[in-house]
């Protein structure tokens, strides 16, 4: 028990957040400017649209050391490219399924809709995933550690 607590204390989940440059990325910038605190182990990846995200990106991030990944997309009906956020969500669903089939918890993949001015929501989402990953422990499938 003590060992487990110690492990939980030292484990800091690595997160790769794929952010649409029209929403998620701006929200992250806002959080930074407003000096809202969020876990330091988050790597932001800027995408021209959440629709650019692909199963390949998510899997590669997880394989190469991430404990969890997230996709931050524009609000529903608000994608600059009309359906990018819908497609992103479909692909995330598919990725969760393939992860489940190889024995990796699908909750390691998070998805949310937000707007450019929602710095607080960005922080909330990141903390949410961070908390979940802390409970789940390290990604058992990561190949590069």
């Amino acid at each position: 028990m003590a060992g487990q607590v110690a492990r939980l204390e030292t484990f800091q989940p690595e997160i790769v957040a794929f952010c649409c440059e029209n929403s998620g990325y701006l929200a992250a910038q806002m959080a930074i400017e407003a000096k809202l605190s969020y876990p330091q182990t988050v790597t932001l990846v800027k995408l021209p649209c959440s629709g650019r995200v692909d199963a390949l990106f998510l899997l590669k991030a997880l394989e190469n050391g991430a404990d969890g990944v997230m996709v931050l997309a524009c609000q529903k009906e608000n994608c600059k490219f009309l359906k990018g956020n819908v497609r992103a969500e479909q692909r995330i669903e598919a990725t969760r399924k393939t992860l489940q089939r190889i024995g990796i918890q699908p909750e390691r993949v998070a998805f949310c809709h937000l707007a450019a001015n929602m710095g607080h929501k960005f922080v909330e989402e990141v903390r949410g995933l961070y908390g979940k990953l802390t409970e789940l422990g390290p990604n058992p499938g990561k190949v590069r550690k």
Partner: peptide, 8 residues
């Protein structure tokens, strides 16, 4: 990736 992670 799937193969690597599953085996890992």
């Amino acid at each position: 990736s799937q193969i690597r992670m599953a085996r890992e």
